[in-house]
């Protein structure tokens, strides 16, 4: 039986109100929900990212769970060390990295790849707000093509780095994309991740109102649009078998997603058309991969 809202209400989460998150933060929303599924027996590892600040300043923290902050590049390695130590103590505790896209796609990619290749028994969550938001909106490897940031004033020229597929190429037992736009899909993926042993990776789209130039009330709506326009497809790869988990009945035009965000406001129709083609291509590619016994 999949979890319902009523079930979740009975579960204890690790997020306490009164944190330093901006209003409408996709990170706090996804963490709030996921920490319920992950449960009390969970330790978090956080590299430098918005979450370092969202936790609140010392001597208090808004996170009611053991949490290790660690240097930017080091989250997956530190989490691996924690898990191995628990193994020597025969303690069955979930170890979960909660990292931004900079700490995942850029500076932390080596440690992530190492941990995935070693099939460390941890869950790595990248909450992807598609830029270095904590430092004030600079481009990362996960910033999508076309997006304005303070270091891509004319829009990013290169496409977004496809981290979930990079991790899948390590033959990690479980890789998924998820989004607060589809909360029950997200919940199910965390449940699934918990039921699997080995390296598990969840790539969460995490709208950022100040960074994306969106109204704080639209976080969930825009996250849903990202999927409905094929811009951020929701899928999972379990032991090589790919499955698209959310198939919008009818694709929405990409313009619906881009035009409501300040970061894409400068885009010409041609540029939007190019990005739409890329999105549809990737979607079709996913459909093809879905037919395969294994994508690896």
């Amino acid at each position: 039986m999949p979890l319902t809202v009523k079930d979740l209400m009975k579960m204890e989460g690790a997020y306490l109100p009164g944190s330093a998150a901006c209003p409408g933060c996709g990170l706090s929303l996804s963490f709030r929900i996921a920490s319920r599924v992950l449960g009390k027996n969970t330790v978090y590892v956080v590299p430098a990212c918005c979450f370092s600040v969202v936790q609140s300043p010392m001597p208090l923290t808004s996170i009611k769970a053991p949490l290790l902050n660690i240097a930017f590049a080091a989250a997956a390695a530190a989490a691996s060390g924690i898990k191995r130590a628990y193994e020597t103590l025969n303690k069955d505790i979930n170890v979960v990295v909660w990292a931004g896209d900079g700490g995942t796609a850029d500076i932390g990619l080596q440690a992530l790849s190492g941990a995935a290749e070693r099939n460390e028994n941890i869950i790595y969550v990248c909450y992807d707000n598609e830029a270095y938001m904590n430092t004030g909106i600079q481009r990362s490897g996960a910033t999508p093509r076309g997006a304005w940031t303070r270091t891509t004033l004319k829009g990013k020229e290169e496409p977004k780095k496809n981290v979930p597929m990079i991790v899948a190429a390590h033959k990690a037992p479980y890789v998924a994309t998820a989004s607060v736009g589809y909360p029950f899909d997200l919940i199910r993926k965390f449940e699934k991740a918990l039921s699997i042993k080995g390296f598990r990776y969840i790539h969460l789209l995490s709208p950022c109102p100040p960074g994306w130039g969106i109204d704080s009330s639209t976080t969930v709506e825009i996250a849903k649009l990202a999927t409905d326009t094929y811009f951020f497809p929701l899928y999972e790869v379990e032991n090589g078998k790919l499955r698209i988990t959310v198939k919008p009945p009818k694709r929405r035009p990409l313009k619906d997603y881009l035009s409501v965000q300040g970061r894409f406001r400068h885009l010409s129709d041609e540029e939007i058309e190019r990005m739409e083609k890329e999105a549809i291509n990737w979607w079709n590619h996913l459909l093809e991969m879905e037919k395969m016994e294994s994508i690896l």
Binding site: A71, G81, I82, A111, R118
Partner: peptide, 20 residues
């Protein structure tokens, strides 16, 4: 732990020591 760099070796050591 056969990690992929010294940076990760020390980070893993920090993790393990943090776990006690």
């Amino acid at each position: 732990m056969r990690v992929e760099s010294e940076h990760s070796a020390m980070a893993a050591a920090i993790g393990a020591s943090s776990a006690g």
